[in-house]
Each structure stands twice: as C-alpha cells, then as structure tokens.
Design a protein around this nucleic acid. Structure first.
Length: 754
DNA sequence: CTCCTACGCCTTTTT
DNA sequence: GGCGTAGGAG
C-alpha cells in the first residue's frame, strides 16, 4: 500500500536517510528545530512497518512528556500497535524491569522509590547518627557526591578503595563520606527503597552481575534501541545502553539522537563524552546531521550560531533556515528589575494586538526561578493569564506527602522515610527523642524501625509510649489488611480519615490550611481517576487498581506531566525547563553578568561553556520574535544589587540586533509609582536617577577614552581607567566617586563625557 | 513533647 | 524576600 509510506514524503533527504537506516548503529546530530522528534517517531514507525513487533523496540527519553508525545505520534502513523513500543523515561522503564526482576538482586518487587527529599532526609539522619558536623557534611554536597559515585559505577566498596576520591574528601575536610555512602546504601536496602540513581545503578548491576543469565533475555527482547537527548546521558546510562546492544554478534541496532550544543545538564553528570565515545565504540556507525532549522527566522538562527561559535569544544555544525530574515533581536535595557518586568509585560500586550498572538504564543525565560515574581506582577496588571512552570511539584507538597506516607507504609512498612514523616503526624505523642531511641535499637539490631515498633512491648518503654506505638502499628496493619480487597481509592479515603490527616487540615481555617485541604481532596480525586480510567501504560492496560499499583504509577510522575497545556497562558519558566519547547515570541530576561551566566559557572571554562549552551537553547526557542532584556539593578535575596549586561550579549553581532529606546514607552509611562496600586510596590522602590532617564544623552563610544571624566546615569561621576575589547564591544574600567570601580560595556551603559 | 521565634541559607534540576 | 531548621521556653 503506497499510502502507508506517505510519512516518508514529509521528510527532507537527510531526515529520510536517518529514518530508513534502521539496522546497525546510527548517530543523529540534531540541531534545534530540525525535526528531531519527527525523525525519532517516524523511524520507530518505519521499523514497525518492516514487520518488527512493536514490543521489541525500546525508546528511552528523559521526560514522561517526551515519551508520551512520541507514542502518540507513532500511533498516528502505524495505528494502535504503536502503543506496544517500550517508550518511556530511563527511570520508568528500568523501574518496571527492576520490579519484575527484584528478587534476583535482593529487593522485593514492592520497593519504594525515594525522591530527592527522601534521600536528603536519610543522609541528614545518617550524618546525625554518626555525630558529624552537619555544617561540614552538608546534605546537598554529600548527596551530589553519592549520586556522582553511582553515576560513575563506583560502589561503596570501590569508593573506599579509591585513593583519588578519598584524597578529595580529605582535602574538603570530609573524610567520612565513604562511610556515609556505605551506610546510605545499606539503609536504602533495609528500607526496601531505591533512589532515582538506584533505578539506573541497580539496572546496570542486574545486567552486569547477570543472575540467571537475565541479560540475554533483555538483549533478545530489545532488538531495536533508541535514545533521545543523548547529550544529556551520564556514564551510567550509557553503560546500560552498551550492556544491551554491545556484545558479541549483536546486530547493534542502536540509534542515539542528540545535540552537543544543547547539553545543559553537565552539572548533574551528563557528559558529551558519550557522543565522542559512541563514535569510537561503534566503528560501523553512520552519522546524520540535521542542520536545517524549521522553527526560527534567520536573524535568530544567525545569532544562535554566533553565540555557540564561542565554544571551542563542539561537533562542527551550522544550522540554517529558509524561513526568511524575520525580525531583528530586540535588546531591552531597564534600570531595575521592576522596570524590566513592566516593559516585558507591555511588549507582550503590544505584540498580542499587533500580531494577533494568543497568550500561549509567549514565553518569558529566566536563569533562576526566583526571577518570576516581577513578571507575574505586571502580567496580572494587564490581565494577561500566565502559568509558572517549575517550582514545587504537587507530589512534593507537605500535605500530599503526609497522606502518601501512610499509603506507602501500607505497601512497604520498612520505608524509613515514610515512617519518619508520619509516625508523629498528626501528633500522637511519639516525639523526636522517643523515635531516636527506637531508631537506635533498630540500627543496633540491623533491622528496620518497623520491626522494632511491632514488638515495642519487649523494650520496656513507658506505658504511655508503648500504647501510642501500639495504636500506630495497628493503624498501619489495618491498612495492610485492606490492601488486597480494596481499590486504591477506597483505601486512600480510609487512610485519610483514620490517620487523622484529613481532619488535621480540615480543622486549619487559615488560607494556607484551606489550600492544603483542597490539595488533599485533589489527590483523592486523582486516585479515583486512576481507579476508574483504563489508562494504558507501556504495553499493558492497568487492570490492577490497587494501592500498590497506584503508588508505582505516581512514583516517577512530575508536575509537568499532568499539565493541561490546552489553556491559553503565557509561559514563565527557567531556560532549563524550556528545552524542547518553542514559542512565537520569546523573552529572555535577566541577561546580566553573574546572573546569566550564573556566578557559580564563572570559575571554570567548562562552566561558562555550559552557560553559553544554555543561552543557545534559550535563543533557539523563538520562532519569530526574540527579546533579550537586562536591568542595571535588581533585588536579590532582599537587597538591591547592581549589575552589568551579560558578556553573552556582546557575542551577537550588531547586524542581528535592534536596541529599544532608553526610555519607557510613552503609552504607559504614567503609572510609575504614584498610582498606589493595590498589588504592592512594584516600581516606586527604585533608586532615583541623578538625571531624568529621558534627558540623559550618552556620548559615542569613540569619545570615551582613558583619563576622561565621565558621568553614568546611576553610578554618577567617575574617571576612565582603561578601555579594551573589540570594536563595538568595548569595555571601560571606570572608577566612580561613590560607586567605586566598575567594568562597563560602553554600548549599553551610556557614559557621558563631562 | 510541643510550640514559637530567631537565624541562616540561597543555581540550574527532565527522574 | 521567603523558607526550613534548630533550639529554647512553656
């Protein structure tokens, strides 16, 4: 049937080759907007069209959303059999396999998944128990250390024997990290828990230790393996992929798709070394480069190329577009972050009317989530609906974790973190000191807290405590008894009532409390949905509507997954969160030195390169309009800090740029300060410029020379000490009478010769 | 054991 | 500015 092949007609020549070369190792380097998802999905569809059963295809992504989209699109091309593809995140696919194979590696199939909060809490507990100084042994640092050990396949035992790691820990005055790691691993196992890294690490161990020759089973099963966003994989993930496809007589049907220029997760262990190694490990590799950009107009694409060319280490490629020149990139200068917020909101309003855009055609991107506030304020003033992405996930909220804690305990009472969370919530007189005693007994006996609680009578505690504990144990046991008979909703409702969690929040009449009670209701509604719907996950419709099944389903779900993106709202998100998305009009805010690039990144060349890739990602989200904005001062941690424009701005040549006026747009200048807005004080808390903004006339760059007395709009009088940098992007070092020494990019900062 | 306050911290983060 | 935690008073 010729009609069945029509999907191939929707591809350009290179895309088509990448889709139809299904046998043997393939690397696809896919620039932004180059139709990467299309290639990936059509390739899978094409494999199925060749008669390969869909369940023999493994497609690994980083987000649930990406996996879902991929499946939907495959199904559109090949019909319902597309649903049988094993498409999912690394974590969810491996969790599923691990549940099935759990006993082979000493776990039970009902293991708990610890999220980041759980991991940190366990580490804090261990640090305390070991009597170490939590200031020196800070949780975040320890967690990163353990995580990166796992990501590099270093077991606790190997860590102890690794001279280099031990030396590093000694020089950071934390010689006991190896011991913490060992204890942490032991405690996870005792609790029947795996953290996010374990889902990968244990998967690797399963294939590596190979009990009952399990590796053959999966090698035969997954005849075709595809990996999305390969530039974001770490050594561990790549090692698992190699286990699956790299062995004697393997057909090596592995296809990885990625873009080294968009690698923005190196700080979490991702390494583009994997792309370079891939080329080494598979000599028969075929490489396809997708360089045509179908998303953006030329000014945007050119700017992106200019910026990324400042990174020396990269796979050579140049994206191009035939969508026309489009609009130049706007540079928006603001005095304060509040003004930046106002002017961005104004521009959105203006573009909406001029171009008939909807709210959802816009995105405001920033480096840090804390920057969202000023934009919220001004969008609200204009009655423009918006949605903030990122921030705390629904499942991370306290009240949600409280109820889930009880549910998790019913399924796995050894779960130490769930137990710690709910044993005294709501209050039942089992306080910290009592719990510590119980935990100590458990540790001394190498067993879980639950085992001690069950036989609390034996330990001679005061009657009051013994009674409280007995009540708690009976409560959990009741839930356990109902596990088989009740569906998830029935049991969750029962637990919400009997545990007292629901009553606790219903009694709290503050706004906060009402919100939390609402969230609990929403959680219960969600569980009801789960029970009533026939959702299909991977290749099985979930027929098990029990609590165990429910908890396994939500363990790896994040907020972004249940967002209904059908409503028309301006998107506010971090640049990281924007990866993979596109918008007609994009504002990248806070283009300031030490903010973007982040202060933390400035210590190393690699850090700065990663920030630049992040900027590249930001630029390439825009289809038609791109605006880069910065402010000369902004609130940070409650105080005003002065800032100068990001050095990245100077990496885009003038021919792609357009500068907005240095004054507020006339239409809405009046609202500054005095109108007494009920929404708080957005603009009036600015510094008073020494000279009205509109009266200030900057001198041309050529007049700013060493030794001259100059005036700056905010810093006041000063003297030029030095002038350096390429023509058009000169940087002046100026000593100001009051503000001290500053380095200033002349074309942005407006200096006037006196 | 529980409640309240003062202090100290702060990037990004698909799972 | 905002949140989570430690530590002291009740």
């Amino acid at each position: 049937m010729l009609a069945g092949k029509s999907y191939l007609d929707e591809l350009n020549d290179i895309q088509r080759d990448a889709v139809t070369t299904i046998d043997g190792p393939v690397l696809v380097i896919a620039g932004p907007g180059s139709g990467k998802t299309r290639v990936l999905t059509y390739r899978i569809a094409h494999i199925i069209e060749q008669g390969i059963p869909a369940y023999q295809i493994l497609a690994l992504t980083f987000t649930n959303k990406a996996a879902r989209e991929m499946k939907e699109r495959i199904t559109k091309v090949v019909g319902s059999k597309g649903g049988h593809v094993w498409a999912g995140t690394f974590h969810s696919i491996f969790a599923r396999i691990l549940r099935y194979e759990a006993e082979k590696i000493g776990f039970s199939s009902n293991f708990t998944i610890y999220d980041t909060v759980d991991s940190k809490s366990l580490i804090t507990t261990i640090v305390k128990e070991m009597g170490l100084d939590p200031k020196v042994y800070d949780v975040n640092g320890i967690r990163t250390r353990i995580s990166s050990a796992k990501s590099n396949l270093i077991s606790p035992k190997a860590y102890k024997e690794n001279i280099q790691l031990l030396a590093q820990d000694r020089s950071s005055k934390r010689p006991f990290i190896n011991k913490i790691y060992e204890t942490y691993a032991m405690r996870c196992k005792r609790a029947g828990a795996m953290d996010f890294d374990d889902l990968l690490y244990q998967m690797f161990l399963l294939l590596h230790k190979n009990p009952d020759n399990v590796v053959d089973k999966y090698r035969e099963k997954f005849r075709y393996v595809l990996v999305d966003e390969f530039q974001d994989t770490n050594f561990l993930q790549y090692s698992i992929i190699r286990k699956l496809v790299n062995y004697p007589k393997s057909p090596q049907n592995v296809c990885v798709v990625g873009d080294d220029a968009q690698s923005i997760y190196a700080f979490r262990g991702a390494t583009i070394q994997n792309i370079l190694d891939f080329q080494k490990h598979y000599p028969k590799l075929k490489t396809f480069k997708l360089e045509q950009n179908y998303r953006s107009t030329s000014f945007i694409v050119e700017a992106a190329n200019e910026v990324i060319s400042f990174n020396k280490k990269q796979i050579q490629k140049k994206i191009w577009s035939d969508q026309g020149d489009g609009q130049k990139i706007k540079i928006l200068k603001a005095v304060t972050d509040a003004e930046e917020g106002k002017r961005v909101a104004d521009m959105i309003l203006e573009q909406k009317t001029r171009n008939h855009f909807n709210n959802k055609d816009f995105a405001i991107l920033y480096r840090t989530n804390a920057q969202s506030r000023v934009f919220e304020e001004h969008l609200r003033k204009h009655n423009i609906l918006y949605k903030i992405y990122g921030g705390q996930s629904f499942y991370q909220r306290k009240e949600i974790k409280d109820l889930l804690g009880y549910l998790k305990l019913a399924v796995n009472p050894n779960d130490e973190e769930a137990l710690k969370r709910v044993i005294n919530f709501p209050k039942r007189a089992i306080g910290d000191s009592s719990f510590s005693k119980i935990a100590k007994i458990a540790n001394d006996n190498l067993t879980s807290n639950w085992e001690i609680l069950k036989s609390i009578e034996k330990f001679g505690f005061p009657a009051r405590l013994t009674n409280s504990v007995r009540g708690f144990v009976n409560l959990i046991k009741t839930f356990q008894r109902h596990l088989e008979k009740m569906d998830a909703y029935e049991l969750a409702s029962l637990a919400a009532k009997q545990s007292g969690v629901l009553e606790f929040y219903n009694r709290d009449k503050t706004v906060e409390g009402l919100n939390r009670a609402n969230n609990l209701r929403e959680l219960l509604d969600g569980i009801k949905d789960f029970v009533e719907s026939d959702e299909e996950i991977e290749d099985v419709t979930i027929t098990d509507k029990g609590l165990t099944s429910y908890l396994q389903n939500i363990a790896l779900i994040t907020d972004q997954d249940n967002d209904k993106d059908n409503d028309d709202r301006v998107a506010l998100m971090s640049v990281h969160a924007a990866k993979g998305l596109e918008f007609e009009s994009v504002f990248v805010a806070g283009m300031e030195d030490k903010l973007f690039p982040s202060q933390m990144a400035l210590n190393s060349k690699d850090g700065l390169d990663e920030e630049r890739r992040l900027f590249y990602v930001a630029i390439t989200r825009a289809k038609q309009f791109l605006c880069l904005s910065f402010a000369f001062s902004r609130y940070r941690y409650g105080n005003i800090v002065n800032s100068s424009p990001s050095p990245f701005l100077g990496e885009i040549s003038e021919k792609n740029l357009e500068h907005t006026m240095g004054v507020l747009p006339s239409r809405s200048t009046e609202s500054t300060g005095s109108t007494g807005s009920r929404l708080g004080p957005p603009l009036q808390r600015r510094m008073k410029p020494r000279i009205p903004v509109s009266d200030f006339k900057a001198s041309p760059i050529s007049e700013i020379v060493v030794g001259k007395e100059v005036e700056h709009i905010r810093f006041g009088r000063g003297k030029v000490l030095a002038k350096e940098g390429p023509k058009g992007n000169e940087v002046a070092t100026v000593v100001f009478d009051e503000a001290g020494e500053k380095r200033i990019m002349i074309k942005y900062a407006k200096l006037k010769v006196l």
